[in-house]
Simulated assay, not measured.
Amino acid sequence: MTVPTTPHRPAAPAPARLGGPLAIIFWCACGITALPLAGLFSLVAGLGVGGAKAVLFDSFAGAGLPQQVLRLGLVPQVILFVWAASLVLLTVMKARAALSLSPWLLIVWVIASTYSQFAIRDAISPDGADLSAFAALMPGLLAQAGLAAAFFGYFKEGQRPQAYYTRGSGL
């Protein structure tokens, strides 16, 4: 007696999961997004809206060195916040746009961070930035550039990001 055979149907693709390095990146982006928001909400809770606004504007206003360094230091932080918030949002939406937008925003962060670090060094050094400033900043800048390049490659070639974001909403 022979057993009747059934036509073989291809197995459905496994659902895309947020796991591995992609999950670690996602949760780090959640932390980068949550920390400034928590600080801002704490400031508002402690001082009220008017008090928080006054403290923030007073700390950024002025032409003094502390205010200049603060403004220069916040530029890369704001860009990193935008990168993290967009990555969180695009990941939750499983939006295909994350594959191209997120790596490019990180590249913008590296450029802004590089500029800000040299500008801060130039502002605080009596004779301006020199070769020693370049030597002091290069290890960190090379690490940032290397990490951004790895992230760029992971989102372009990595199996998990390709599977996760291309099975999403199509945005």
Rank of each mutant, 00 (worst) to 15 (best):
G48N: 10
R71T: 03
A38N: 05
I32N: 14
G146T: 06
L18R: 00
S116A: 15
A149I: 00
A63H: 14
G62S: 10
I124F: 07
Q117K: 12
V44C: 06
K53I: 05
G170F: 01
Q159F: 14
Q117F: 11
I25G: 04
A97S: 03
A136Q: 11
F26D: 01
P139Q: 05
R160T: 10
G39A: 10
F57I: 09
F81C: 07
L47A: 13
F134W: 13
G51E: 01
A84S: 12
F60N: 05
A133M: 09
L22F: 00
A12I: 02
Y115M: 08
V75D: 08
L142V: 13
L147V: 13
G51C: 00
Q117M: 13
V108C: 09
A95Q: 01
D122M: 10
F60I: 09
Q68D: 07
T166M: 11
A84W: 01
Q159H: 12
I79H: 05
G128M: 10
A84L: 02
S116N: 06
P4Q: 01
F26V: 00
G140W: 08
F151R: 03
P66E: 00
P66C: 02
S100M: 14
A38S: 06
P13I: 00
L18A: 00
A52S: 06
Y164T: 01
C30F: 09
W109R: 12
L90Q: 07
A129F: 06
P15Y: 05
G48E: 03
S116I: 11
L35R: 11
L147P: 06
A136E: 09
L106V: 05
L90E: 02
A16D: 04
L80H: 04
T2P: 14
R167Y: 05
D130T: 10
G158E: 01
F57K: 07
A145C: 07
Q77C: 04
L105Y: 08
A45R: 13
L80M: 13
